[in-house]
């Protein structure tokens, strides 16, 4: 895993923290911890997460 980037929510000026976040795809839902603004809940999904775990789960659900 690469170092977690320090990211600041532009609107709330708060640093993002790892928080439980829900996802849905093709009628299935699941959750994982991703960086979010503690105030407004704005999320950050890194390309690394997209290219690995997310695309893997997407493929699995498409073939389910």
């Amino acid at each position: 895993m690469s170092k977690i980037r320090k990211l600041i929510c532009y609107q709330c000026q708060r640093e993002l923290e790892l928080k439980k976040t829900d996802f849905t795809y093709l009628g299935h839902s699941f959750f994982t911890e991703v960086p979010r603004c503690p105030e407004c809940g704005q999320v950050f999904i890194s390309e690394e997460l997209v290219k690995n775990r997310i695309s893997e789960v997407e493929m699995q659900l498409e073939d389910k």
């Binding site: 976040t21 849905t24 795809y25 809940g41 997209v50 997407e58």
Partner: peptide, 13 residues
């Protein structure tokens, strides 16, 4: 700098 996309929907609310 970069762009990418995913099919999974983020339930932000």
């Amino acid at each position: 700098i970069n762009a990418y996309g995913h099919r999974m929907k983020i339930e932000e609310t």
